[in-house]
Design a protein around this nucleic acid. Sequence first.
DNA 1: TCAAATTACTTGCAATATGCAAGTAATATA
DNA 2: TATATTACTTGCATATTGCAAGTAATTTGA
Lengths: 150, 150
Amino acid sequence: MENVRELFQIMTRRFGFLNKNCCSAGGCDISLIQSHILYEIDRQHKPSIQQVAEALGTDITTFSRQVQSLIKMKLVKKTPDPDDRRVNLLSLTTEGKYVAASIDQQMNDYLNEIFSHMNDFEKDTVIRSIKLLNEAMAKSGQCCSTPSRG
Amino acid sequence: MENVRELFQIMTRRFGFLNKNCCSAGGCDISLIQSHILYEIDRQHKPSIQQVAEALGTDITTFSRQVQSLIKMKLVKKTPDPDDRRVNLLSLTTEGKYVAASIDQQMNDYLNEIFSHMNDFEKDTVIRSIKLLNEAMAKSGQCCSTPSRG
DNA sequence: TCAAATTACTTGCAATATGCAAGTAATATA
DNA sequence: TATATTACTTGCATATTGCAAGTAATTTGA
């Protein structure tokens, strides 16, 4: 069998470039990390700081400060959880949603460009494969989750 | 069609965790970035500093310093190119090769674990898909290469 | 019922990483 | 052979990181 890791490594590196390129979409210029944060806040429903930090595998003190700068940029807002006032729920501002949507648009444009080099069958196979892969990674929890800290 | 970007985002994030987890394989504890550098130096044949920096999309002054610390750790060595003495060729030391091999081993173990949740047909399909994807990304050069700087 | 433990998050600080500007040395160009 | 270009390195100012140690709110347990 060929070198599977090689295939994965190259693919994820390229996808990383894609993500990086998309950070300057829609007139906004944010960092790759900030783009990931916006994405994850958008994806979850009113997540807490801890939840997002966990999802992204970031140290919580670092993440606390990343959130602060996104708030300063008026892309994210923090709302105290009425049920537990220790918790702050994160959500995107209107501007934050706009930026996230611009990035998403750019990403999907790029992905369509990539898929334009395949026929419909290949495209379908690839998408199903990624789904399979995600399911398999979810099943083998110990290796594909956030790196152990402490 | 479902959200393709979502699938990719989750997959690459999980693969990133995998990579991070593998950095402490074989008794060595290096950063994710250092792991990527070792991988890329190993992959290319005696690459120059510029070539690796380009491949990884890193600023060359930053990369110059990253190489310096890997040399201090005795994982990488720099050899002047006899044909062009401006150029320094990078290669792994014996210890560097050992560390790179340990990480590779750990990565492949994890990947096998992931594939153990699939049957042979699915596994085959997934691997062929990633290959297809890499080829397609290579074709659409403008979006999947190192982000423009300057 | 209330002191002690836990949880969610924030700040101080010291160490590290970043990238631009400006360097050096070697090679290519005109 | 002077001038540009290339490959790489350093100075410096800024940004990012994570541990230790905080605060405030909630849970636990005697």
